[in-house]
Design a protein around this nucleic acid. Structure first.
Lengths: 335, 335
DNA sequence: TTGTACGCGTTATCAG
DNA sequence: CTGATAACGCGTACAA
């Protein structure tokens, strides 16, 4: 194949100007004679010229791209965030490079190194494992970082927050308000910050209403449907009484409901269930599942906007905290 | 911040060798004296040197990364593919750069240009809108392309295929085998190839069993839950009789079931439903939904492996076609 | 307004 | 086995 990459030099020759001039029209510099500009443009078209990205990046030290690290490339939560981030970024002329941290330290570290090495003009991060220091260091090293669902004092204005703890607290309180006191909870992997926070919120609510915390009613799972099912089966097998369960996310709740049904228990008649995150599907389940809504789209939107403002080095006057909200539906019964 | 990026030059000075030698140990070239190698490595460590990615890419014309274009960053189908592709790629020392084609021509074109400009060593593509010619051209221009769910004769060995048409045919046939003949279908956007193929399969089955094709029983929707609901409501409003509906994917089927229920119809007693793709959730719905399973993980796996083999320029002796499989559950009733 | 010449950080070629 | 030095393709002070 005729793989003679056409370069700025070829264009210059064709248009009978210097390479510098070509570069100028390429980056539309102010003072260039229209006539010359026209000639160069024409030459570009005729030769089918496209600037070499690496050369550009190397020469000016910016990549016109922002990185996005999520925990997983699959699933509703991160899927929604990716969609939103990608949309506003592309609209702004930036490209979005997505990587997965897999929730492990090595992976997160590698992903960050990757994005830094590509000189992402900014990096949006959902990190479970990286230390504050590491993140701060990266931020200072030239790639401004936007944190999702994590707060670091020094990076105050670069953190998009929503309160897992408070959300879990509200969820549990909702259960309590409906007369429940034997409340179980299935958490995500406690190595994840969000899972821990949600557990904390659960405990806080219990505490506030003077309900003793019973470790036998809390099981750790993995934020996924089959995991939720398994954990619920274990819970059932243990034969401790409970009238409600708060699931660390909706996926697990869905699995849990199935396990409950299998055991001949129906929701919400026999046991009440509340989830977390509020996947769109909740509306379509039977019974419709109550959950805490995390405004994922807003989060993605804010994160991307903040990244952009960081690049432009302008202040952004936006509230960086979003609220989680109780969505009452049919899976919680008053007793 | 002390942003003096340390370069190969600094390392060379520190180790008292030439830049060329540093480069050699960096790319572990065969003939380098261990003693010198050691000295350079030490200098690198002391200086905290990390090679500049753009320089490397510029100099050697390869980027050590492969691109992946999907239709959407969200949703189960593409989420699973992304996960799988990313996993095998990272394991092989490649980085994966994900972009979204949004199912529109402009977007797909831009995404491809992006990946080409980054000199992806290979590109994995799920494309709805690009023409065969465009794809072939990109493939020849130096970035080998792997197609997912699309067949182009000239790129025969680079197409990971599964048969949408045959899958839809099987699904419809399954309905027919269960005694149904008034079968509606809700399709995805017919601008998408897969949606069209699934419709074709539906028609083929009808034809085979001499059931007349009734346009009033086919509605176009958008592959999403609310869309499926809406379309089903329209179908209901039209008052044509049907005893079963084949949904172009599970998401729409889930929305559809809700609409059915709202209208006082229960599944499968009053109307049978079958979906497509087989999201893991199907197991957990009530009733458990029958569907055609597309082995998404295998697809991602194959695509990535093929991309790798293309880069290495070695033949890959793998079957590039995967089967979709009927998962019979509870949403189809024999009448 | 336009051209010259050098720098960006690496790799590749070719002597030595 | 190692060291100069020329690419790689583009941006940009500086000069004209």
């Amino acid at each position: 194949m005729n793989n003679k990459k056409v370069t700025i030099k070829d264009v210059a020759a064709r248009a009978k100007v210097s390479r510098a001039s070509v570069s100028r029209v390429l980056n539309d510099y102010p003072g260039v004679k229209p006539e010359l500009r026209e000639r160069v443009n024409q030459a570009m078209d005729e030769l089918g010229f496209a600037p070499n990205y690496f050369s550009q990046a190397l020469a000016k030290g910016r990549s016109q791209s922002v990185g996005l690290m999520v925990r997983s490339l699959g699933g509703f939560f991160f899927g929604s965030i990716m969609c939103e981030v990608e949309e506003v970024l592309t609209k702004a002329g930036y490209q979005c490079m997505v990587t997965s941290g897999h929730g492990t330290y090595e992976s997160e570290r590698a992903a960050m190194e990757f994005m830094v090495s590509r000189q992402c003009d900014a990096i949006i991060v959902y990190s479970d494992c990286l230390s504050d220091e590491e993140i701060i260091k990266i931020n200072q090293a030239g790639s401004p970082v936007v944190l999702i669902s994590r707060f670091i004092q020094e990076l105050d204005s670069q953190c998009i927050r929503f309160d897992d703890t408070s959300g879990a607290y509200q969820a549990t309180k909702h259960l309590i308000a409906n007369g429940h006191s034997d409340i179980a909870t299935i958490t995500g992997p406690l190595s994840n910050q969000d899972a821990r926070d949600r557990l904390t919120g659960y405990r806080k609510a219990l505490e506030e209403f003077a309900i003793p915390y019973r470790p036998e009613l809390v099981l750790e799972s993995n934020f996924q449907v089959p995991g939720g099912k398994l954990a619920t089966e274990k819970l059932l097998a243990a034969k401790h009484h409970f009238s409600a369960v708060f699931y660390g996310n909706d996926e697990m709740a869905i699995g849990g409901i199935q396990a409950l049904n299998h055991a001949g228990l129906s929701v919400p008649e026999d046991v009440s269930v509340i989830g977390f995150e509020d996947v769109p599907l909740n509306e379509f389940l039977k019974p419709k599942m109550s959950s805490m809504r995390i405004p994922v789209a807003s989060i993605g939107n804010l994160a991307a906007k903040r990244a952009l403002s960081l690049i432009a080095q302008e202040e952004l006057d936006l509230a960086l905290e979003v609220d989680v909200q109780l969505m009452e539906r049919e899976s919680v019964k008053t007793i």
